[in-house]
Computed example of a mutant assay.
Amino acid sequence: MGVIQDIADNYSQGQMIGLGIAFMILPIVAVGLRLWAKALGKGIKMDDYLVIAATAVSVGCAVVQLIAAINGQLGQHQTVGVDGAPLLDDPRFVIYEKCKLAVNILSTVGLGFVKSSILVFYMDIFYGRPFKLASQIVLGIVVSWTISFFFANLFTCFPISPFIEAFYHNKCVDGLALWYGMAISDILIDVIILVMPIPMVLQLQLPWKQKLGVLVMFLLGATVCAFSLTRALIYVHVGDRLALHFNDETYYTSPVFFWAVIELSTAVLSACLPTYRPIWLLMRGRPVRQKHQGSYFSRNQDSSGISRTGRGYPLGSVTDYKDDIGLTDNMRGVDVDISAEGNHSEEHIGPGRGITVERSVHLGSRPVEHV
């Protein structure tokens, strides 16, 4: 808890302005690189639009933080009267309170967009009814979570007011309890989203070295879980400090403000990281594989999403997955022979080791062979 205290109780107006600028630029750069990578690869899809929306909200939160730091009292001690009581009608304090309400509402919406983008990305690269159903259920939970906490933050007081503290005598719920509930549920959802791809990746017919590489790529999202956990611990610390410093709210509740901005910006970055492979290939001078329309392979699978003729992923999803994150053809378990003419394709699966692909495409009267 000493580390949390050092993080939470040592800041200034200048630091708040610096953080606001840095975490405004970070998501813009992250999504810009993502769009570049998608332009090189398979093009813009629904998950990209969702993360663009999250970026817009993230930038909005950073702007609100700058307003609160420059015109309000973010990261600064609250103005008090000669009797030591806080001046509740101080214009800078009023701006801080309004900005705090705004950032709590906006960050909730932004996190909902990020989580939804990741789940849509999962559904795009993994086939199988059980996984799709699980993803849809979690997506429904994310949408419900976003809507619920959007309105919970909006109606913390009724009528709607940013002044939630007891000394205003408004009809409000316990703001700290609301923040605790939001932070804990945020962590639980992040952990669920983080572990969802693990069993799917473990079923891939790949050497363990390659499996671990793919797992590491997906587990980069653990950084978001770390920030979510830190934010929850910060909330607990804020509650303890406010009990001792009730007349210095702007200083001791500032972490509630800027940690929301930090978590949302890093969440956007984490959602973008798995999409950067085409840029990496371009920088290394290697050809960037374009996303093909449809799948190379027909989806010969049962309701579990596993190929009936071999263990692991259905072959269609392996190919699409490989295009997305750069898996090689060095996969074990089945041999595949494919011949294609016009728009018709057939596949044959037999026992053996490795994947062997034969494709014949007729362009006019001239056959083109590729093995």
Rank of each mutant, 00 (worst) to 15 (best):
T55V: 04
N247M: 08
N247V: 12
I192G: 01
E263K: 00
F155G: 08
I325D: 00
I198Y: 00
V173T: 08
G213L: 11
S317C: 10
I25R: 00
G312E: 09
F149N: 06
W145T: 04
V31A: 05
H237K: 10
L363F: 06
G239K: 03
M200Q: 15
A8M: 14
L26T: 07
F163M: 06
F149H: 07
I70H: 07
I147V: 15
A54T: 09
A340N: 01
P314D: 14
A222G: 11
L19C: 01
Q293R: 13
Q5T: 08
Y11A: 04
Q205V: 11
S265G: 13
G14P: 02
H169I: 00
K209F: 07
Q15L: 15
I17G: 00
P207Q: 06
V191W: 05
N104Y: 13
I137Q: 00
P367M: 05
G181Y: 13
T108A: 06
I349F: 14
L88W: 12
S135L: 06
G128K: 12
V120A: 01
L101N: 09
I193S: 01
L88K: 15
D48R: 10
Q293D: 07
F126T: 05
M196T: 04
P159I: 14
G84D: 10
Q78L: 05
L206T: 03
A183T: 12
I52N: 12
F158E: 04
A177Y: 08
A243H: 13
D83E: 11
L282N: 09
S345L: 11
M123W: 09
V59N: 01
A22K: 05
V368K: 02
R241E: 14
L202P: 02
N330S: 05
W259M: 11
V368T: 12
Q65C: 09
S307P: 02
L220C: 01
Q290D: 12
A62C: 09
Y313S: 09
F155C: 10
R366D: 08
A53T: 02
W280D: 00
Q210E: 15
